[in-house]
């Protein structure tokens, strides 16, 4: 039975929800075994694309396991995503384009837009549930406060 567009959308929305809740193990389960995760953007200063995060499963797992030990930005993120486009290529993969707005709320309760960007996802639809095989969070925003350890 082929995987519907809705299932792909729900996968992408779930990835936002799990990251907001910092349920990292469940978050990693949404990916294929050898996925690639990147945060990238275009820098007009050096007139080129650049990567600000580049991790495979082992590296992301190591990061997320260590996050509690790091000295962290206080407050919380809330990711609002809308899947704009799903394009199938062949039976096994689909590409999804998702617009994402990330809101940041301080412990005192002040909310601001932290960053906006787009998920360029390659989705593995060969199994019975869809999995993210490749995610590139292409940021529009390059001034992201003091920064964070977390994937976007």
């Amino acid at each position: 039975m082929t995987i519907s567009d809705d299932q792909i959308k729900n996968l992408i929305y779930k990835s936002c929800r799990l990251l907001d809740a910092e349920e990292f193990d469940d978050y990693l389960d949404l990916y294929t075994e050898d996925f690639e995760y990147k945060v990238t953007n275009y820098s007009p200063e050096i007139k080129s694309d650049q990567e600000w995060m580049d991790a495979n499963r082992a590296e992301l797992k190591g990061l997320l396991a260590n996050v509690p030990l790091h000295f962290r930005l206080l407050g919380s993120f809330m990711r609002h995503a809308t899947v704009y486009d799903i394009e199938r290529n062949g039976a096994d993969t689909a590409n999804a384009l998702t617009y994402v707005t990330i809101y940041y709320t301080t412990p005192e309760g002040a909310t601001s837009v932290w960053a906006v960007g787009r998920y360029h996802d390659k989705i593995d639809v060969s199994g019975d549930t869809p999995l993210i095989a490749d995610r590139n969070m292409k940021l529009e925003t390059r001034e992201v406060g003091i920064g964070t350890h977390l994937p976007m």
């Binding site: 945060v39 600000w52 995060m53 990061l63 260590n66 790091h70 962290r72 930005l73 992201v144 003091i146 920064g147 964070t148 350890h149 977390l150 994937p151 976007m152």
Partner: peptide, 8 residues
């Protein structure tokens, strides 16, 4: 870099 372990 902004998403690194040390910068923030």
């Amino acid at each position: 870099g902004p998403f690194s372990r040390n910068a923030s």
